[in-house]
Design a protein around this nucleic acid. Sequence first.
DNA 1: TTATTAGATTATAATGATTATAAAATAAGA
DNA 2: TCTTATTTTATAATCATTATAATCTAATAA
Lengths: 147, 147
Amino acid sequence: MKKDIKKYKLLNIKLTPQRIAILDYLERNKTHPSVSEIFKYVNRRFPSMSFATVYNTLNTLVQHGRIRELTMDNDKKRFDPNTLPHHHLTCIKCKRIIDVDLDYPLSLPENKSSGFKVLGNHIEFYGICSECSSLNKQQKKKLSEII
Amino acid sequence: MKKDIKKYKLLNIKLTPQRIAILDYLERNKTHPSVSEIFKYVNRRFPSMSFATVYNTLNTLVQHGRIRELTMDNDKKRFDPNTLPHHHLTCIKCKRIIDVDLDYPLSLPENKSSGFKVLGNHIEFYGICSECSSLNKQQKKKLSEII
DNA sequence: TTATTAGATTATAATGATTATAAAATAAGA
DNA sequence: TCTTATTTTATAATCATTATAATCTAATAA
Ligand SMILES: [Mn+2]
Ligand SMILES: [Mn+2]
Ligand SMILES: [Zn+2]
Ligand SMILES: [Zn+2]
């Protein structure tokens, strides 16, 4: 209880069980989950929880700078509880997203920024994860199971 | 006519007026437009054109590696006719996306890539464009006009 | 040139993600 | 404990995107 308050109170938003559950899930999770993944999890503990609450909570947390909204997955929003500057590596097949905790000092000269105030950057490495690399074998298995 | 064929024929897809118009628009355009922006434009020349054709064409061109689908804008897909490796600078307010044509050699050591086959990277610089920076004044004007 | 046909376009329905609305519930402070 | 501003919930609405099926046409070859 105290923990929760200590951890979340600074946001100056009401501390509800649903919000605590959502933020707890995000913090114990390194997968950069989507809204439906978050909903699936917290809904197990709060069967009455609405999908709208997950959206509301996530939007509120983003607005308060408590979490970060990722863009790499064009199909749906993904969320990151770590708002410190860091980069990501995405699997182009399954859209798995992992952290890249390396420092890359990137400077963008003013004469190349067309009048923009440059605030930061984010590197998206992309590739194919090990599961998707070895999919040829698995594909056959799964296909044979399905068909 | 010959130009079109020379330009697009290599894709081994049927050369239709709609496809030519869509690709022409993309190539004369540095704004990384969305589907609806593309539709709005080509629909002026092909009033019978369907929204589905724009989606179909864009997906086909992406699949054939002729254009690139961008992810920075979480609200809608944006498209880039330049498939050569380059980076981008996005306005966090209006989502304007401009090119960053600088070479940044970024290496991701194997022991930091969790078994991924790393294929490339893309840097998203972000900031505030000049139009959005000066919005405070404009906002007042527009607000006073509206209210 | 004409006939054939695989592939493209169109109109439209369906889906999926996200946002909006309004009533009921509740956290937080007095 | 009381009050109230916020939040949650249920649900409808909206927006982007994909799927379907009928119609059309670019490309090929006779
Ligand atoms: Mn992360
Ligand atoms: Mn570009
Ligand atoms: Zn994968
Ligand atoms: Zn802007």
